[in-house]
Write a protein that binds this DNA or RNA. Structure first.
Lengths: 153, 153
DNA sequence: ATAATGCCTATAAATTCTATAGACATTACA
DNA sequence: TGTAATGTCTATAGAATTTATAGGCATTAT
């Protein structure tokens, strides 16, 4: 289950992807528009910036904008920044590795070996979905529904 | 990231799969052998029994044993029992559904549409791995290492 | 009967997640 | 050069969840 923090990040990124490039968005406006606690959002945006996904400008006329096109921001990258990792068990994490407390032998641990498969499956799907996909799918669904409405008229 | 509770469940199930059928194992023994807090394990085993994966016998000579062969216990089933669900967002959960607080329109939510893919990928891999796989892979790795040792002698 | 066992409810302790406060640093622009 | 507008940073509070424990009850074999 992904955390609220990551959901907020998705929302913020989708919002930023929908604003004209070179026109930074204020934290306060973003918070209001997406109904995210401002101070919490502040922290989330900072993380995303440090993760290389956002640009910020301080001072008057400042704000946040995407650092890269939405099509090149993978969902996996977002999740990794906010959740720290994707791995289902910490002994499989690359960024946040920790040995299991009482794992006798990591190399032959059946749980670990099995979870490695899960890890690969998860990473694969998350790394192949992008912010642009999120937006496209939403638009596509909206159009589908709109067409049905048109048809009915 | 899967919880300690689920890891404990895996360990307990692997242990039970490794004991002769019809020979129930005591909670106390299992707790000691796998180094799991006894009272916590008690709760975990109860959940697994209610989930249909274990049989128990009360009273003297009682204990726990697998209700089905290890090859027919999927990792997904175990995770679902302990974690409640697999879905990455609650609005995709079947057993534990909850609408997102401020989702304007669930049908066109890009986050939800995207996470649906993740959900399928995750469910697929988890449902196709079994307790028997966990044990087999562990054995296979052990043999590999053993063979290397033999070869070196 | 009695001892051995799982079952159940309640609750405590620890950890993580969510949210807030407030001072500080940087920038645009009058 | 001053001032208002902004993001940055550190600290901490509050809420929720996860992990762990206690103790009495119900059931069974002998």
């Amino acid at each position: 289950m992904i955390s609220k923090k990551t959901i907020y990040a998705f929302k913020a990124l989708i919002h930023l992807a929908g604003t004209p490039a070179g026109q930074p968005v204020l934290i306060a406006d973003l918070a209001k528009a997406e109904n995210i606690p401002k101070k919490f959002l502040e922290f989330i945006l900072l993380s995303l910036r440090k993760g290389g996904l956002l640009l910020s400008r301080i001072g008057k006329g400042g704000g946040y904008s995407l650092a890269v096109p939405a099509a090149r921001i993978s969902v996996g990258a977002i999740v990794r920044i906010l959740e720290g990792d994707i791995a289902p068990v910490q002994c499989l994490s690359t960024t946040n590795y920790a040995r299991c407390e009482e794992c006798q032998d990591e190399a032959t641990c059946g749980i670990r070996l099995t979870m490695a498969d899960v890890n690969v499956a998860l990473a694969t799907v998350l790394d192949n979905l992008t912010l642009a996909d999120m937006i496209e799918r939403s638009d596509a669904e909206r159009n589908k529904i709109q067409n049905v409405v048109d048809y009915n008229i």
